[in-house]
Amino acid sequence: MKLTVARIGRAHGLKGEVSVELHTDIPEERLVPGEALETEPAAAGPLTIESVRTQSGRWYVRFDEVTTREGADAVRGVELVIDAEESDEDDAWFVHELVGLAAVRPDGEKLGEVVDLLSMPAQDLLVIKQPDGHRAMVPFVEEFVPEVDIDAGTVTLTPPYGLLSGETPEATGETHGAS
């Protein structure tokens, strides 16, 4: 099984540099000059990293095989992947392992179902489809997602008031002193 490290984004400049959307907590170890990474689709690679830089929180990569803007445009959307056995990231899950899990409170109250995982610059977001059809985005951080239990088919959530539809401050323990 393959683990996605990053997805190639837009071309940056005229000489083949691209932005990448990270799917790893350790990009400085995964995106190393000289490293050849497999791709999905496989026909697009492998791609060998020539250089890596960050600017304003974004990561930019240049590959030996991509030397023009047209080449960079051609690899947009390609995923850089590694064998899952090579992953040494703690608490790392595949998106397909999370999708379909029941989202519950610590007391077992069902809040909905995980339907997606979005990778954002600050942190990943779990997308939860609630019974009323509302889609809530919960930051995938330990404070709000203290437990993922793949075997039990659940992800425990402790989101702050306001992230889920139809809740009251009392339900989240965030009452702010009554008058």
Rank of each mutant, 00 (worst) to 15 (best):
88 D>R: 11
100 G>V: 02
176 H>W: 14
119 S>R: 14
128 I>E: 03
172 T>F: 14
99 V>D: 05
70 E>G: 11
43 A>D: 15
137 M>R: 14
63 F>K: 00
94 F>M: 06
36 A>L: 05
14 L>C: 10
96 H>S: 14
22 L>N: 01
133 G>Y: 12
95 V>F: 15
168 T>P: 10
142 E>T: 07
4 T>I: 11
87 S>R: 14
173 G>H: 15
37 L>Q: 01
134 H>V: 03
114 V>E: 03
60 Y>M: 05
59 W>L: 06
178 A>S: 14
124 D>Q: 13
140 F>D: 02
20 V>K: 01
35 E>Q: 07
50 E>K: 03
101 L>F: 02
93 W>G: 03
66 V>M: 09
43 A>P: 11
151 D>I: 01
65 E>M: 02
23 H>N: 12
54 T>A: 11
16 G>Y: 06
175 T>V: 12
168 T>G: 13
140 F>P: 00
179 S>P: 13
113 E>C: 02
9 G>F: 06
58 R>A: 11
24 T>I: 05
88 D>C: 09
178 A>D: 15
113 E>N: 03
51 S>P: 00
170 E>M: 06
23 H>D: 05
108 G>F: 15
113 E>S: 03
29 E>T: 00
117 L>T: 04
144 F>Q: 07
153 G>K: 05
85 E>K: 15
101 L>P: 00
6 A>E: 00
153 G>T: 01
78 V>C: 13
50 E>M: 02
52 V>E: 02
